Simulated scan of single mutants.
Amino acid sequence: MSLTSAHTWDAVVVPESTAEVVELSQGGGFRLLVDAGATGGALGANRLTLAPGADGARPHHHALSSELFYVLAGTMEFLLGERIVTAGRGSLIVVPPATVHAFGAAPGSTAEALVVMAPGVERFEYFRRLGRIAQGQDSFDGLLPEQDRFDVHFADDTAWLRARAR
């Protein structure tokens, strides 16, 4: 591919004040920055804030996308395949497609991360549904038929639950 090849989308600028906020339990939430449609499918991005020790996502994998996490503040824990990794401010984590992963704020710590998926999948509705689930307005079981649509394929969470129960 040439550096001068045509692209199908324009540069995107999302001022913080215009990003949609989806609230999670305990004061955490997503700031929805850009969805795949605005980037020609190149990527999607959000900013995630987690309350002290809060889970961010149960074990899952993405069939199509890699997921990048840049820890902006606090400390996070990640399940990466069979490993549990602790990552503090300034850490970069890249999860390839098909790798089962989960994440949350480390016990006793808040966390904030920039999360980028590439290639992008239209996922803003997924985050909105997570917000409704966190607020008790929807059920997790309603997401199960949507795993292909959102490229979020849930996995067994025994190891993650055991690690988080410490």
Rank of each mutant, 00 (worst) to 15 (best):
I93R: 02
G81H: 03
P96N: 06
Q135E: 15
T75Y: 05
A134T: 11
A111W: 03
A134V: 07
R83M: 12
W9T: 09
V94K: 02
L43S: 06
E125S: 12
S66P: 00
Q26H: 13
A63K: 14
G136H: 12
L32N: 02
M76R: 04
G28W: 03
G41V: 09
R164M: 14
A134W: 06
E122Q: 15
G120V: 10
D148H: 13
G108S: 08
M117K: 15
V21I: 13
S139M: 11
L161K: 15
S109C: 14
G88W: 09
E112I: 06
G56H: 04
T4Y: 07
G74V: 06
G81T: 04
G53V: 07
A42Y: 04
A42S: 14
T39N: 00
Q147P: 04
G56S: 05
T39E: 03
A45W: 01
R132P: 02
F69Y: 15
L50M: 08
D10T: 15
R47H: 04
L50D: 02
V85S: 07
R166Y: 05
G131Y: 11
M76D: 03
D151K: 05
F127R: 00
L114D: 06
A6D: 15
L68K: 00
G108I: 08
E67S: 07
G41R: 04
R129N: 09
G74W: 08
T39C: 05
Q26L: 12
F103D: 04
T86H: 14
A98C: 12
R129I: 15
A36H: 00
P107H: 15
A36E: 00
A38I: 02
A105F: 02
R89M: 11
F124S: 01
S2W: 06
V71R: 01
E77W: 11
